[in-house]
Computed example of a mutant assay.
Amino acid sequence: MTELPIDRQGDLLPPPARIFVAGHRGLVGSAVRRRLAASGYEVLVRTRAELDLRDAGATAAHLREQRPDAVVLAAAKVGGILANSTYPVQFLEDNLRIQLSVVAGAHQAGVRRLLLLGSSCIYPRLSPQPITEDALLTGPLEPTNEAYAIAKIAGIVQVQSYRRQYGASFVSAMPTNLYGPGDNFDPDGSHVLPALVRRFHQAARDGLPEVRLWGTGRPRREFLHVDDLAAACELLLRRYDDDTPVNVGCGTDLTISELAGIVAEVTGFTGAIGYDTSKPDGTPRKLLDISRLAGLGWKPQIGLREGIAGTYAWWLENEAAARGAGR
């Protein structure tokens, strides 16, 4: 692997630079917003009601008006296997529109730095493990989230194209499976970890004898706390300037069955765990090679059980607040 392109003269984006965080209310965007604000940056945000990022004209006009020093593109339409399989058109088109609007608008506004956040699902379904960044476009994608993956691949190519044609200091990062405060616990649209937390919590509350999960339980997954991702995002904005997307993960994985055991323990569920093998597993294994990011001095700080316990506590608190507000 070639030496990382680290700026030898100093920080590429020191505080108190002004950074527009697109998607600041989501799991990733809210964590990035917290991290950047704590580090002394001026964080700029707009709600969806104030600015529809799918609207290229409105997005470009907003960025020209605000003139941020950098943009973090964390806005995206995301979901689990069920949502991706049910709404592939929206997962493709909404994400393409957001990326086209924000990246092009940032360039038109003269934004110095941009970080586009993608997903590890960009890599081929049967990539050699752990997955290095050069595995991109070397094989077929996982069919259950192909539309989303193609949109994210297009975002990477868009960033690379602006670098090559215009010399833009735009970069991209590909996080692994994320979780943490602010996650989506909707049973129809959530990813695997928050979906498990909700199901095991409800099963423990209702005294159910068994929780039955999709698939075989054998696929292996990597999970990173969103606050660790936010720390990586700040580091990349300050230190990284190259057209190769950077993997962001924790470097270790576990089976869905092992994950279910941890979630059951955290939520207090003591019944049996069964599997519906008629349902799809998704990608057999997805572990990222994070040596490129580690070379910048980054490593995750939050252990999985600790992170799940904190996320569960956050969800319980927010569910109670939502119930109270609804009375």
Rank of each mutant, 00 (worst) to 15 (best):
A272W: 00
G271H: 07
Y166M: 08
R285H: 11
A325R: 14
L288W: 06
A61L: 01
R33P: 00
P175E: 06
I256S: 05
I153A: 07
R292P: 01
V32G: 04
A260R: 02
D52F: 00
T244V: 10
D276V: 04
L44V: 15
W214M: 12
L115H: 11
D243P: 15
T277F: 01
V21R: 10
L116C: 03
L236P: 03
G40C: 12
T216L: 02
T86W: 11
L13M: 09
R113C: 08
A83H: 15
P130D: 01
P187W: 08
D188C: 00
D188I: 00
Q9D: 14
Q99D: 01
G215C: 10
R113T: 08
L235T: 06
G297I: 11
M174P: 00
G23H: 09
Q99I: 14
W315C: 04
G307R: 09
W298R: 12
L115E: 04
G26H: 10
T47S: 15
R239Y: 00
K77Y: 10
G79E: 14
R125C: 14
A22N: 03
D186V: 00
W315Q: 11
L178S: 12
H24Q: 13
V171G: 00
D94G: 06
I256A: 10
I98D: 03
D281F: 06
G29D: 02
C250H: 03
P280E: 11
Q90D: 15
G303N: 13
N84H: 15
N145C: 14
L51R: 06
E3R: 12
L136R: 12
V171Q: 10
T47F: 03
L63A: 11
T277K: 10
A56M: 03
Y123A: 05
L236K: 06
P175G: 08
Q202I: 03
N145D: 14
L136H: 05
G23A: 08
L137H: 11
D253C: 11
Y179L: 10
I262E: 05
L141E: 12
S190I: 01
E50M: 04
L287Q: 14
R33H: 12
S190H: 02
A294D: 08
A60F: 03
L126E: 15
G23C: 02
L136A: 07
G261N: 09
D206K: 09
Q99R: 07
G297N: 11
D227H: 03
E319F: 02
W314V: 10
G180C: 08
A38V: 08
G29I: 06
G23K: 10
I98M: 13
T176Q: 02
F223P: 02
A76R: 10
M174G: 00
I153L: 15
Y41V: 08
L213N: 09
L126N: 12
I98A: 06
R18A: 13
T47D: 14
D242K: 01
D188A: 13
C233A: 14
L287D: 07
A320F: 05
Q66G: 02
G180Y: 04
L115M: 11
V71K: 01
L141T: 03
G155R: 14
A147N: 03
N318T: 12
T255C: 05
D276H: 04
P284M: 08
R238D: 03
Q108S: 13
R292M: 12
E42L: 13
L115P: 04
L63K: 12
S172K: 03
N247L: 06
A76L: 05
